[in-house]
Simulated assay, not measured.
Amino acid sequence: MLGGTEFVGRAVTEDALARGWDVTVFHRGTHTPPPGTTVLHGDRTAPDGLAALAHGEWDLVVDTWSGAPSAVRDTARLLAGRAGHYTYISSCSVYPYPHAPGYTEDDPVVDGSPDDGGDVDYPRAKRGGELAAVAAFGDRALLGRAGLILGPYENIGRLPWWLNRIARGGPVLAPGPRHLGLQYIDARDLARWVLDAAGRGLGGPYNLISPPGHTTMGELLEACVRVTGSDAELRWTDPETILAAGIRPWTDLPVWITPGEDHDTMHRTDTFKTHAAGLRCRPVTETVADTWEWLRNIGGTAPRRPDRPAPGLDPETEAKVLGGGADG
């Protein structure tokens, strides 16, 4: 496991350990990996940073890297003759934005290069990582194009923000319409599918996300109210009112995107191929409940990646909009 100490990587590591597999975690040493792993330290961005991987053989490799593709290139090349299979956790962001709803793995993707180093934008970085994995492993490379990822250990802060906001109670600005369909994947469902698929030797790209409409904005936020046990009152507000207040979808109100082209791009991905290959997605109530339990166990403050902005709406703006009587 390249990484394996945070969010998706941790979910993969824990799933592999639960299967009784021998797991080696290669990471920088800034976080503690799950107990029971063999630990190797290294920094993929540093000279000689892969030295700890110079020896050894592995059946499967899982890589969650989202930085410069050259790091994937160097790692995959180093392991190609000593590993049986390579899974790269990519992203649906490799498809050009915006795109029509229902896009499949055969649709066009953005340009990318495995030789890109330094700062490249996220879609190009993920596409470059894909190309690097395929160049080294060929049809032994599995490309898991994930969408929105939620669940315990989330270090972006989207679902944790909603849970903490709703736990505080009172009137809550709930972005409508409440029936707006959402498409995401619980990190644990991603992990289970990846390890199953890698074990079967699957290769090539797979859109790794729930079916469109797996849940709705209403179901998500109502689940947050139930699991936190708060007295929160969801004030469903129409998108026009929210946008007129200068509130940014996705960033200020995590997960939510206004209906239309942006929403269709994020929440209407074709997933037939992945589900035919065995993906099963747990209900949103379970994802929300388990994330809340994890949050409480760590004191309520979720870890956050330093390269991502903190999501969430400031209380003053929320109060101003709610005070205006907008209701959807």
Score class of each variant (00 low, 15 high):
residue 187 A to K: 01
residue 308 R to Y: 14
residue 150 L to F: 05
residue 129 G to K: 09
residue 320 K to Q: 14
residue 282 R to G: 01
residue 307 D to R: 13
residue 41 H to L: 15
residue 48 D to I: 12
residue 276 A to N: 09
residue 316 E to V: 15
residue 293 E to Q: 14
residue 11 A to I: 07
residue 206 Y to M: 02
residue 22 D to G: 13
residue 89 I to P: 01
residue 22 D to K: 14
residue 99 H to T: 15
residue 251 T to G: 07
residue 27 H to R: 11
residue 129 G to S: 06
residue 98 P to W: 05
residue 20 G to F: 11
residue 215 T to H: 04
residue 297 N to I: 00
residue 305 R to Y: 14
residue 97 Y to T: 08
residue 102 G to H: 12
residue 14 E to F: 05
residue 4 G to E: 06
residue 200 R to G: 04
residue 258 T to F: 03
residue 54 A to D: 12
residue 97 Y to C: 06
residue 315 P to Q: 00
residue 34 P to A: 11
residue 136 A to P: 06
residue 293 E to H: 13
residue 243 L to A: 15
residue 158 R to Y: 01
residue 324 G to H: 11
residue 124 R to H: 15
residue 105 E to K: 07
residue 313 L to K: 08
residue 264 D to R: 13
residue 23 V to S: 05
residue 122 Y to L: 05
residue 172 V to W: 08
residue 215 T to I: 02
residue 118 G to I: 10
residue 214 H to G: 04
residue 211 P to T: 08
residue 271 T to P: 03
residue 232 A to F: 13
residue 268 R to S: 11
residue 13 T to I: 08
residue 184 Y to S: 07
residue 303 P to V: 04
residue 92 C to P: 00
residue 187 A to F: 00
residue 240 E to Y: 00
residue 152 P to M: 10
residue 232 A to E: 02
residue 231 D to G: 15
residue 284 V to E: 05
residue 289 A to N: 09
residue 128 G to F: 02
residue 251 T to K: 12
residue 154 E to K: 07
residue 36 G to P: 09
residue 38 T to W: 01
residue 300 G to A: 07
residue 7 F to L: 12
residue 113 S to Y: 05
residue 166 I to Y: 04
residue 285 T to A: 15
residue 34 P to C: 06
residue 171 P to R: 15
residue 266 M to R: 11
residue 192 R to H: 09
residue 325 G to E: 04
residue 303 P to N: 05
residue 253 L to Q: 01
residue 181 G to D: 10
residue 172 V to C: 01
residue 201 G to A: 02
residue 135 A to Q: 12
residue 60 L to F: 13
residue 73 R to T: 03
residue 270 D to A: 14
residue 243 L to I: 14
residue 68 A to F: 04
residue 79 L to E: 03
residue 274 T to A: 15
residue 166 I to H: 03
residue 114 P to Q: 11
residue 119 D to R: 14
residue 98 P to V: 08
residue 119 D to H: 12
residue 108 P to V: 09
residue 115 D to S: 13
residue 311 P to A: 09
residue 83 A to M: 04
residue 69 P to V: 10
residue 109 V to D: 05
residue 48 D to R: 15
residue 27 H to W: 00
residue 151 G to R: 05
residue 129 G to N: 03
residue 144 G to E: 11
residue 123 P to D: 04
residue 121 D to N: 14
residue 226 R to C: 00
residue 271 T to F: 09
residue 178 R to V: 04
residue 199 G to I: 04
residue 69 P to Y: 07
residue 178 R to P: 09
residue 138 G to K: 08
residue 191 A to G: 09
residue 87 T to V: 15
residue 196 D to H: 12
residue 213 G to V: 06
residue 203 G to Y: 02
residue 292 W to V: 07
residue 130 E to L: 08
residue 213 G to W: 09
residue 276 A to V: 11
residue 56 G to T: 12
residue 77 R to A: 14
residue 288 V to M: 02
residue 185 I to K: 02
residue 213 G to K: 07
residue 53 L to I: 12
residue 179 H to L: 05
residue 322 L to C: 14
residue 311 P to N: 06
residue 298 I to L: 09
residue 264 D to A: 15
residue 66 S to K: 00
residue 85 H to I: 06
residue 253 L to M: 09
residue 39 V to I: 13
residue 288 V to S: 02
residue 160 P to L: 03
residue 196 D to V: 10
residue 34 P to R: 06
residue 29 G to P: 06
residue 251 T to P: 01
residue 47 P to K: 10
residue 104 T to N: 03
residue 23 V to Q: 02
